[in-house]
Design a protein around this nucleic acid. Sequence first.
DNA 1: TCTTTCCCCCATCATTTGTTTGATTTTCTC
DNA 2: GAGAAAATCAAACAAATGATGGGGGAAAGA
Lengths: 216, 216
Amino acid sequence: MVINFPAKKSRNLETVRVKILIAARRLFGKYGFHGTTTRMIAREVGIDVSTLYYHWGEKGNLYEAVVLDINDDLRKKLIDLEGIIHGLPLAQRMGIAIEAITDYLFEHPEITKVILSRCFVNIRHESSQNIRVPEYISNIAFSMGLSGDKKGVSVKHKMQVLTIMNSIYAFVSGEEFFRASLGIKRDEYIALVKETLNFILIPAFANSMAGEKANF
Amino acid sequence: MVINFPAKKSRNLETVRVKILIAARRLFGKYGFHGTTTRMIAREVGIDVSTLYYHWGEKGNLYEAVVLDINDDLRKKLIDLEGIIHGLPLAQRMGIAIEAITDYLFEHPEITKVILSRCFVNIRHESSQNIRVPEYISNIAFSMGLSGDKKGVSVKHKMQVLTIMNSIYAFVSGEEFFRASLGIKRDEYIALVKETLNFILIPAFANSMAGEKANF
DNA sequence: TCTTTCCCCCATCATTTGTTTGATTTTCTC
DNA sequence: GAGAAAATCAAACAAATGATGGGGGAAAGA
């Protein structure tokens, strides 16, 4: 729980620190927190393990940094997306959003892997797990038009967004596993994921305006 | 990779061996493979760690046993379920199945946790990961009436079943995380999960017979 | 140029972790 | 109850792992 990392240099000489962060993201995503050793990360970057500690301190520190970094990336991506789908009808908005988010996450599968392993797998010596669904869940609900109020998104709508996001996360994180099982190639798989998500997720919201209250 | 475990005693004196399996299931589910140590498991059972090795050999062996055991439980449960929903119309079948599976898994969250952590998180020294989606995915597709043929279930339908199962798994495995974020109690959460799953999953299949071909 | 700061590595340490060995106790069989 | 078999534990080991301290070199500031 030490909090002493060197000040940013603001040059591109920051590279080592960032390289560590990137390698850590990939490895924590692939093997989980306990499955990743500081030496593995250091080896991937090509530095000594003590250099890693110099830059980031405790392993848990680095892990937290990875999580924050990922949430940040995702938040930015979603803001971009919001600009694109703004104003479109709900079903169309959903379709575009699913397509865009899916593409993005398939390009950066470490993101979903870290998120899921953080949500589902506990860490020993349970630290101050700042457990919380990132605020962007509410933002998504708002962007999608499920909720008219950005702050006061109802639990019900948050759950709906979670369902959508979880479905995408699962297919991205489980790509290796599912593809090996189904025996298909990457692009086939990605196309199939989109197709399936559209088939399953869209209809529920398609007639949302009319059916919302009737459905519950 | 040693394969010498003692023969079954067929008495209820098998308890220690089984106790280990149960504790291992819980802990592997909670902390993942690398996050769980053999000593943690032994301590939970109240035995020495060497006794654990006497009964199960390598840690990876025990883990594989847990996975097999879980798949077996799930398979049995799904066979039960099939008897109940057989012959009902599709949407109704889906509704009952979701309700039943959700209830069952919320009672045994270690099941989903182990499955997800196995699908999504790699293990170092990647052993002979007999990667495969268990055959029950096809069985579910058949029971649901998505496919008329138990053996030759299409990839598309398998994907649909995976979507459903993944959604349930995610909400069960992520209960602690999501509930803490949403600030609701367990029974509220479970009810909300069912409600949301029904809202999102059912409509896609509701008019499936008519819309199947038109949708793609 | 001299000094200070920053960055990095070598060597090392204390624990933890997977696993085994050998002795001891418990249970079963006759 | 004697002897065989099975189950358990205490102790130990090697390797892996999280973490640190000191030294050396490059760069920056004086």
